[in-house]
Amino acid sequence: MTRTGTGVATLQRDLTDRTDPDAVDATLAASGDAHAFERLYRRHVARIHSLVRRMLSDEEADETVQDVFVRAWQKLGTFRGEAAFGTWLHRLAINVTLGQRETLGIRRKRFLDSPAALETVPARRGGPETRLDFEKAIERLPDGARQVFVLHDVEGYRHEEIAEMLGLATGTSKSQLHRARMALRQHLDR
């Protein structure tokens, strides 16, 4: 336990209500402490890597995750602690993964998946096909449907947020989610 003393007590009150290791390490890392940043990395990499892997693909994930953490290091000075560090990092990872600087603000994006990809998620009915591992099946979804599914059902974002992030109408986000879910039915572990 910490030694008591007004200095330490002030420290704890300055940072968070409790001693939050993320908040402490974020402050240290912002001033150049790479060891503190490594601790943050080790604590968060599994979650971030899984997010990126599911949004993109296995082979792109490592490189993108490295970029996420390098970007986090660069931007630490702007992290003011209004949100939990994990939440901030998560948002940053989504930005980097989608290949954009910010998800905030309405930007009319023209990078839509080709209409064919969006509309035809293969409907497999019956048949003795090998069932894919659920995560592999997610990877096989077309880009748009996969991103919506991961952000909504895996990560818990709402359609309004997802629509803004991906530059879609909310209705499109909902229909993409439905198609993804319908396609994934075949690959549940039974």
Binding site: E38, Y41, R42, V45, A46, R47, H49, S50, R53, R54, A61, D62, V65, Q66, F69, F134, E135, F149, D153, V154, G156, L184, L188, D189
Partner: peptide, 15 residues
Amino acid sequence: RAGSLADRAPVGDLW
């Protein structure tokens, strides 16, 4: 199933 997916760290150490 989606909500219960486990997080998995990368195979190699990216640090």
